[in-house]
């Protein structure tokens, strides 16, 4: 009987090596897999490339991973989050490089990567600084940019409910990048507040089919980033 459930967040991230590329779900705090990120900080992997929409807030979660100087490159759409000076300092110091990607292009690059599509054309960013030096093509009289699919060695995703086969459901706008990052990660780790036996989730309601998920971690009462920040918490 398959079970993808592992005992702890620490066990789930134990084999992430130095230099790995890691997709981290979340749009701001919504959907950010804080426990997996904190386990990764404890684990110590460095020289990481992180693909995530933002760069974290305060000094917890994704911002804490950056602050621990583990991330040398981020690929994201909006690194200017309120109440965090962590990324701007690392960026200005030259420690962490930035590849800025329009949000929809980022999402489609991840979706395409997970779907085995190496590249695609998009109209977003044509004629802008983010479109410079990119291959273009006119299709149907309109100019498009060539963008490349994006995959990663690992994906860290926050679900609401998962079963032992890895089938995953999400909570409201915390879904955001979870389903597509689950597809694009060579090894995808899902943390979920509710883990059930295979068969307990109605197959009609499954959002991420278990084939895209490699490990499931039960995180009963996930931390809430904004509450940690309000309380002045700094991790570790």
């Amino acid at each position: 009987m398959i079970s993808k459930q592992v005992a702890s967040a620490a066990e789930a991230v134990a084999d992430i090596p130095d230099g790995a590329s890691i997709m981290i779900g979340g749009f701001g705090e919504a959907g950010s897999p804080i426990e997996l990120i904190h386990a990764l900080i404890d684990q110590g992997a460095k020289n990481l490339t992180v693909i995530s929409n933002n760069t974290g807030s305060g000094e917890v979660g994704l911002a804490a991973l950056l602050q621990a100087r583990r991330v040398t490159k981020v690929i994201c759409s909006f690194p200017k989050t309120a109440n965090s000076t962590v990324f701007p300092e690392l960026y200005n110091e030259g420690f962490t490089a930035l590849e800025l990607v329009p949000q929809g292009t980022l999402a489609e690059r991840i979706r395409a990567g997970g779907a085995g599509i190496p590249a695609f054309y998009t109209p977003a960013a044509v004629g802008t600084p983010l479109g410079e030096e990119k291959e273009t093509r006119v299709l149907g009289g309109r100019e498009y940019l060539l963008e490349f699919g994006l995959t990663a060695d690992f994906a860290l995703v926050k679900g609401q409910q998962a079963d032992t086969f890895g089938n995953t459901l999400y909570n409201k706008t915390a879904r955001n990048f979870g389903p597509i990052m689950a597809m694009a990660g060579a090894t995808t780790i899902v943390q979920a507040a509710n883990v059930v036996a295979a068969g307990e989730i109605d197959p009609e309601t499954v959002v991420t089919p278990g084939i895209f998920v490699d490990r499931v971690v039960h995180v009963v009462d996930p931390l809430v980033e904004s509450k940690l920040i309000a309380a002045g918490v700094s991790y570790p």
Binding site: N92, L100, P102, P129
Partner: peptide, 20 residues
């Protein structure tokens, strides 16, 4: 973006919205 050197650029979904 103001294009000022040293400013952290952030684009979000604006380029996709205006294109689509």
């Amino acid at each position: 973006s103001t294009g000022k050197p040293g400013a952290i650029p952030g684009v979000g979904g604006a380029m996709d919205l205006v294109a689509g």
